[in-house]
């Protein structure tokens, strides 16, 4: 119980720090790939601090409330994960958080925000089956949905869940909002949907979304980590290294692909879920 609380507190404090530094690394690595020098590593923090000082503007009385709920439930979702909780609970509360964000964008009744919201919804529909199958895979392998049980299971899940691992990496691109799947919003405000989902957010509200994103990225990488734990320090080290490699891979993909159409997003993620995910589950079913 004490370790659980300590983990949650550590998560609450360090997740935004690590998430922000990862975002800074992302920008430097991206810049180098494009032959630029890039900003300092702490730039994301400077950005958020600057956003906090902007004039307080909003387009209606309710959207800030929804964004606040989004941030709160993203933090809670990660809290469940780091408390060793149920993977399905993590996934479902993540959906709840996402719905708050989408409703926030809808509430503005602004065309760009609303198109972004619809695309965000589409992205959820695209990745959700694979995310659920990831949880199912862990359950079938270890007999529990709980992160704490998976950590102490003692056998590395990777080899038995190899299809699911690749399926999860695939949809991670959507979750990290990276090209070719950055349909609903993007950091670059010069495209057909302006800033998409976040068009009507500004100042502190936009800062909340950035921070939520840092929290979110950390527990999404936590899923990757779970594939490598086997109860030994070696497993932990391997897990951390693979998380970093996975993050680098996503940055690489981001820089080497143009944005695809939504049709491709939906089709490819569902095809991956059916092939890699489902077949992996069927194999597991007959192994155990």
């Amino acid at each position: 119980m004490t370790t659980m609380i300590l983990w949650v507190i550590a998560y609450l404090i360090f997740a935004p720090l690590v998430g922000g530094i990862l975002a800074g690394l992302d920008r430097i690595v991206s810049a180098r790939m494009q032959g630029r020098v890039g900003p300092p590593i702490l730039q994301p923090f400077y950005d958020v601090l600057k956003l906090m000082e902007k004039e307080a503007l909003t387009v209606n009385k309710v959207q800030d409330f929804y964004v606040m709920c989004f941030l709160i439930f993203i933090i809670i979702t990660g809290g469940f994960f780091f408390a060793g909780g149920d993977l399905l609970l993590v996934i479902f509360s993540l959906t709840l958080a996402s719905v708050f964000l989408i409703v926030a964008a809808f509430s503005s009744n602004s065309p760009y925000a609303q198109i972004g919201a619809e695309r965000e919804l589409l992205q959820i529909m695209a990745y959700e089956p694979m995310v659920l199958m990831t949880a199912v895979g862990f359950y079938m392998f270890t007999g529990s949905f709980r992160v704490s049980d998976i950590l102490t299971f003692g056998q590395m899940p990777l080899l038995y869940l190899i299809g699911i691992f690749f399926g999860y990496l695939f949809i991670l691109t959507i979750k990290f909002r990276k090209s070719p799947f950055d349909l609903s919003m993007s950091h670059h405000a010069h495209q057909e949907l302006v800033k998409g989902l976040t068009t009507e957010f500004s100042g502190k509200t936009l800062a909340m979304i950035e921070v939520a994103h840092w929290y979110e990225n950390i527990f999404l990488l936590g899923f990757v980590f779970l594939f490598f734990v086997n109860g030994t320090p070696l497993g932990i080290a391997l897990g951390v290294v693979v998380c970093l490699v996975a993050y680098f891979l996503e940055v690489l993909i981001d820089n080497s692909y143009a944005r695809m159409k939504w049709q491709f997003t939906l089709k490819s993620s569902w095809v991956i879920a059916i092939t890699a995910g489902f077949i992996n589950l069927v194999v597991l079913r007959f192994m155990f």
């Binding site: 909003t58 009385k61 409330f65 065309p111 760009y112 302006v194 009507e200």
Partner: peptide, 15 residues
């Protein structure tokens, strides 16, 4: 507790 309470300046949407 919080719904619909804001003292921010309300501005038009981006069109």
């Amino acid at each position: 507790l919080f719904f619909g309470k804001t003292n921010k300046k309300i501005v038009p949407i981006y069109l």
